[in-house]
């Protein structure tokens, strides 16, 4: 088989595989990066961190966001914080952004807690309106995972196992690496699925 024919055959196989993948994705309701297609967009809230800096959740579009509703006096929340600090350190470079929303009544214990636990991600004080924009926070902790397209991917109520979070986050971070590989290899004229 000459080189031209081989390339044509490869192209046909690749195209067939692409069609099959698209069919499977459509059948299983999957959108880009294997995410369910009917995901709701995360509310675009504007927050003020403990130093008075304002930021919007939409500032993190393109990143994977772990949004954690917590309070300093909440035992399960306290247990999760050191794990979040580790996750931010480990995956920050790959696009993870953790944001904490404290539901404490008073900012003073939050500032103390922030320093004591060496928190390495922004923390803002929440309120009822903000909590309701996420469907109501009627118990703590509650954590949301938001994908790179700004869509709500998961909601965890109660203390969640750190390994479980890490697995989910890795899964949500992976698509960019795959996308990058696809683009890189694509420019070299090889079909990458």
């Amino acid at each position: 088989m000459d080189a031209g024919r081989r390339l044509r055959t490869l192209g046909i196989i690749g195209a067939a595989a692409l069609i099959a993948a698209a069919w499977i994705a459509a059948r299983h309701g999957l959108g880009a990066h294997g995410a369910p297609a009917n995901l709701e967009p995360a509310p675009n809230i504007v927050l003020t961190d403990l130093d008075g800096r304002r930021f919007a959740l939409s500032d993190y579009n393109g990143k994977v966001v772990l949004l954690d509703f917590w309070a300093t006096w909440c035992g399960p929340c306290q247990a999760e914080i050191p794990e979040f600090v580790k996750l931010q350190k480990r995956y920050g470079g790959r696009g993870l952004r953790i944001v904490g929303i404290s539901l404490d009544d008073d900012p003073r214990p939050v500032r103390q807690f922030y320093a004591r636990f060496k928190m390495n991600y922004p923390v803002a004080l929440g309120n009822a309106r903000l909590a309701e924009s996420f469907g109501g926070i009627l118990g703590l902790p509650v954590a949301f995972l938001i994908d790179r397209e700004g869509r709500l991917r998961a909601k965890h109520v109660g203390q969640t196992d750190a390994a479980g979070f890490e697995k989910e986050i890795r899964g949500m971070l992976r698509p960019v690496a795959a996308e990058h590989a696809r683009r890189t290899v694509g420019t070299q004229g090889i079909l990458f699925l």
């Binding site: 309070a71 006096w73 539901l103 404490d104 009544d105 008073d106 929440g126 309120n127 009822a128 909590a131 309701e132 109501g136 926070i137 009627l138 118990g139």
Partner: peptide, 24 residues
């Protein structure tokens, strides 16, 4: 419990007095 919880939903007729784990 905490104020944000009470403001979102509470038992009718109940009074909010704040977290009893804190002196205030």
């Amino acid at each position: 419990g905490f104020r944000v919880l009470y403001e979102q939903a509470h038992i009718p007729g109940s009074r909010y007095l704040g977290p009893a784990s804190e002196e205030a």
